[in-house]
Amino acid sequence: MLKVRFFASLKDLVGESEMEMQLEQETSVRKIFQQLETRFPEIKKYESILLVAVNMEYADLDSTVTPGDEVCFFPPVSGGTG
């Protein structure tokens, strides 16, 4: 299993803040993202601008994930309400 968390506008897009995904063996964040894309095609636009974390450490789409890991996707947030 793999835990995936979504933040800010991505959370709205996916409709939930976290989900569990089946994961049997080591893979990359990119593969995980591509799997999510088949369910939520709209997230494709975020691919190049996302901040990615694996187990709350800065990572990128090429980083490795293993079963039991937690992957977080943070879109940029602009608000400061000027």
Binding site: A8, S9, Y46, I49, L51, P75, V77, S78, G80
Partner: peptide
Amino acid sequence: YPEPPPPGLVPSC
């Protein structure tokens, strides 16, 4: 965030 999001993708407050 090396790249800014395209305009309109990320909602403002």
